[in-house]
Design a protein around this nucleic acid. Structure first.
Length: 861
RNA sequence: GCCCCCAUAGCCCAACUGGCAGAGGCAGCCGACUUAAAAUCGGCGCAGUGUCGGUUCGAAUCCGACUGGGGGCACCA
């Protein structure tokens, strides 16, 4: 009869009854039920209403019931409600839920909230297109996403749901803005800004891709000079950079590297050059102040105020040439300007600067390879040792002076600047010093002379937060008639968005709020003088920079969150989201957290202790996109395979940070695995459990307890794919144990133990299947709240282990030995082994390496 | 140009501080059950870890160079 004699009780095996689903039998006796197939839809329909009723993940209740339990705060980046959830959400929320469920099973109280990043341009664009209110579109999408979440069943605490578009939320954005305004961290300045011609709004630097296009619309970003609101993130540049070291090992190294690159700190010196006929010197920043003796000209950014001022004292011809050049420059798009290989253009300003160390007279040029908003918008040009300066010098007949020795050809003839280390030559007192010594020496000299100092500068710019659009947080500032700025008093917050009726939301370059006459016209509190509200709204990254704190206290109408609660729960233990936010959201959020720390609201200064970045879901090796038509639809996968199989597939596909090619995975395979696990629980239920664990199948018990011992490490190392593999392994072994001829089948207590362990661990990735198994195994407590039992140490010890015996590194024999064998005993046993002896023969034994109990290596020669 | 990550079987992936290259899955092949098929169940693994070199008793693992792939920053002074 083979295996199936043990698969089910004999009585049912011999009845030969057809399966219930084939006959359409209505009456579900215990017998027919156990014959039925795994049906994920039935499980979902059964458990959803139960869970909705139970509200198992309501954290206030959990705290009330078990105040002593340790706490964990597990958070997924909240979704942006444009349409339904997609596979990226499925993946991130799968991983976040594994972690949240895991910590509950480990006896912690877990805060795992959810909300909506509800403000933003897509809603506004969709609303314009459809002629509806952005609120309608947004809240309809939220309703859709909620329905999907209900099926997907992440273990959220829905009582803390928040929407950033609710006045009760964005009120606190305004509060935050005012706090920062008071501290001088929110300010207005007139500057060249990135302008998205499609969305008709300004963008932050972080929203412009490296090819000069808009992250959102793909349009080529233009430059405009506008007065806008900024948050002074550069004040925090050093802390944002240095504190990344503390996240080492906790955040993906890729993200740390991206943030380091983005902040882009460079050390060097500020050097003052006196200008002939001008009182004020020009200050330049250089990372190579040691090459100061090699400077042969100066360059200023053409759009800088400095350039305009310098040329104003020059000849009319020079002024004309400069004006022409400036206009040409400004017509060039960002992309054209960023093409590094285009010829370097510029005009001579007919002015001269004096090199502070040797008195050389340096002509000053304006050239657009120098950027107005980096450093001081001016550079000292050292063509011998800077490729850009060299390109410019060779194109404009400017001298090239070598001051760092090298074996390389003269840059003036080779056209290749010498940028490496070396010893200084022709550099006055620096001559003979090595580059690094020379940098220190010249800085000392400049500081002594009062003509410069060592300093550092950053690639990071201040965060531009004004947006000329409707669907965002109004900036709580009033503009008095005299042009002064008056913050809206805190007790008058929120400044609510006016209704859309009568407003034209179409982007036209100025905020639509400016046209809301009744709204925009107001008075100064106290004086009653007429004033205009600031018509711009905030970048939505402000909303998401602190939302994790609002979850702690989402209904508080006195403050953004209770600092006492922040002490209890924050920072986030594990944060899960896509690597696309590696810079934008994560940098802003770190910044705002540090600001709140400095304001005394939180006692930590990094918001996210551990970070998990999920990869992308691809199809056939390429990124999914609607235009390519290669979509894996979340809704379709959920409908066809169910939440559990989908989640198992995502967890099993590979390391969390790797992309998943849907062509490489098998949702059917996942469903098969779940059905096998489910079937085992059914067989245990039907067979009943008889006998003692002591006389049960010990091999299965070993496997079960090894899994109990290993699972925590696997989850905490985010090796979810390995965990699922181990669960599959246990299912396979349990199956074999049940089917083993001469065994006790599903009655074996070891089988029950394995099945219960499977159910408890399966809850991480397949909550419906797990809940059903748990019930089948006779439990009526909710499986999601069970605490995993500890592994029995006695079952982790093997009775014997295989020791390999190598001769010169090649395996020549295997021995079964006790795990606590002594080194000496293992050595003797190994050397006595016939194959080993034969292999050694007459050769001299030079060395024997023993790593008891697993390995012996005999070195002969 | 600067910096970072990765490379194991047809495919996706495992392999604790260097110690038997294989846990799991997909695909494939063989078999059981079936009139047949599906489903289910059982069985089947010689790829020596991208290449070259080094360290070591011993290297997928550590070091160097290279090749291939991916990523970040980039006229950033």
């Amino acid at each position: 009869m083979g295996w199936h004699a043990h698969r089910r009780p004999i009585s049912q095996e011999s009845t030969g009854r057809p399966r219930a689903d084939e006959t359409g039998e209505d009456e579900l006796s215990d017998e027919t039920e156990q014959h039925s197939e795994y049906d994920f839809r039935a499980l979902q329909e059964k458990w959803r209403p139960i869970w909705a009723e139970q509200r198992l993940f309501d954290v206030d209740r959990a705290v009330a019931e078990h105040p002593e339990r340790p706490r964990k705060y597990i958070l997924d980046m909240f979704p942006y409600p444009s349409g339904d959830l997609h596979m990226g959400h499925a993946e991130a929320f799968c991983y976040g839920d594994i972690v949240a469920r895991y910590w509950r099973h480990r006896g912690c109280t877990v805060l795992h909230p959810i909300g909506w990043d509800a403000f933003g341009l897509p809603a506004e664009d969709a609303a314009i297109k459809r002629g509806i209110d952005p609120r309608t579109w947004t809240y309809d999408n939220i309703a859709q996403q909620k329905r999907s979440f209900e099926i997907y069943a992440p273990s959220f605490d829905w009582s803390r749901e928040l929407h950033t578009s609710d006045p009760e939320y964005y009120r606190w954005n305004q509060w935050l803005f005012l706090q920062m305004y008071e501290k001088g961290l929110a300010y207005r300045k007139d500057s060249w800004v990135n302008w998205d011609p499609v969305d008709q709004t300004v963008l932050a630097n972080e929203q412009v891709l490296s090819d000069g296009t808009s992250e959102r619309t793909g349009a080529v970003v233009e430059k405009k000079k506008l007065t806008q609101w900024y948050l002074k993130i550069t004040d925090y540049a050093d802390r944002l950079l240095d504190d990344l070291d503390r996240l080492e090992g906790h955040w993906p190294s890729k993200v740390l590297q991206m943030q380091r690159n983005w902040i882009g700190r460079s050390y060097g010196a500020d050097i003052d050059f006196r200008v002939e006929g001008r009182d004020e010197p020009i200050t330049v920043f250089s990372t190579r102040p040691d090459t100061l003796y090699g400077a042969t000209f100066m360059v200023v950014a053409p759009e800088s105020d400095l350039a305009a001022e310098l040329v104003s004292e020059a000849s009319p011809e020079a002024r004309m040439r400069f004006q022409d050049y400036l206009e040409r420059t400004q017509h060039a798009t960002e992309i054209e300007r960023q093409a590094a290989d285009r010829p370097k253009t510029g005009v001579f300003l007919e002015r001269y600067a004096i090199n502070p160390v040797n008195g050389d007279r340096l002509p000053i040029w304006a050239a657009d390879y120098v950027l107005a908003d980096y450093g001081h918008g001016a550079v000292m040009a050292v063509p011998a040792h800077d490729q850009r300066d060299l390109d410019f010098a060779l194109g404009h007949d400017l001298p090239v002076r070598v001051v760092v020795s090298s074996d390389e050809e003269d840059p003036a003839t080779s056209g290749v600047a010498v940028t490496g280390d070396g010893v200084l030559v022709d550099s006055g007192p620096l001559t003979g010093l090595h580059k690094d010594e020379a940098i220190q020496a010249v800085i000392r000299k400049l500081e002594a002379d009062g003509t410069g100092h060592g300093t550092k500068t950053y690639r990071l710019r201040d965060w531009l937060i004004s947006r000329q659009r409707y669907w965002g947080t109004p900036i709580p500032i009033l503009h008095a008639e005299d042009g002064s700025l008056v913050p809206v008093p805190e007790d008058q917050l929120p400044v609510e968005l006016p209704p859309t009726e009568g407003l034209d939301l179409k982007p036209r370059g100025t905020s639509p709020l400016g046209a809301a006459e009744d709204w925009v016209h107001t008075t100064i509190p106290g004086t009653g003088e007429p004033a205009l509200r600031d018509p711009d709204t905030m970048d939505t990254f402000v909303d998401s920079s602190w939302y994790y704190l609002r979850y702690l206290d989402p209904h508080d109408d006195r403050m953004p969150f209770d600092p006492a609660r922040a002490r209890e729960w924050a920072p986030i233990d594990v944060y899960v989201g896509g690597v696309e936010h590696a810079i934008l959201h994560l940098l802003y959020s770190r910044f705002i957290t540090k600001v709140l720390h400095d304001l005394g609201w939180v006692d930590f200064d990094e918001p996210f202790t551990d970070l998990i970045n999920q990869g992308m879901v691809l199809l056939d090796g390429s990124k999914m996109s609607k235009s390519k038509g290669n979509l894996v639809e979340f809704a379709a996968e959920l409908r066809d395979h169910g939440a559990d199989a989908l989640r198992v597939t995502l967890a099993f596909a590979g390391p969390v940070e790797d992309d998943i090619d849907w062509a490489d995975v098998s949702v059917q395979g996942s469903a098969k695995f779940l059905a096998r696990a489910w079937r085992i629980a059914g067989e245990v239920r039907d067979a009943g459990t008889a006998g003692s664990l002591a006389e049960s199948d010990q091999a299965l018990r070993h496997e079960t307890h090894h899994l109990l011992a290993d699972a925590p490490g696997l989850v905490e190392a985010t090796k979810f794919n390995v965990l699922v593999a181990r669960l599959m392994q246990l299912v396979n072994l349990t199956r074999k144990t049940i089917d083993r001829p001469g065994g006790r089948g599903a009655q074996d207590p070891a089988v029950r133990e394995a099945a219960e362990t499977l159910a408890m661990m399966l809850d991480l990735v397949a909550p419906y299947t797990a809940a059903e198994m748990w019930e089948m195994l006779g439990h009526d407590d909710p499986i999601a709240l069970t605490v995993w039992p500890a592994a029995d140490p006695a079952l982790l010890v093997e009775e014997s282990v295989t020791a390999v015996v190598q001769v010169n590194g090649k395996v020549r024999a295997r021995l079964q030995v006790s795990p606590d064998i002594s080194a000496e005993a293992l050595r003797e046993t190994a050397l006595a082994e016939p194959h080993v002896r034969a292999r050694i023969g007459d050769a001299e034994i030079r060395r024997v390496i023993v790593r008891e109990p697993r390995l012996v290596n005999v070195v002969i020669g």
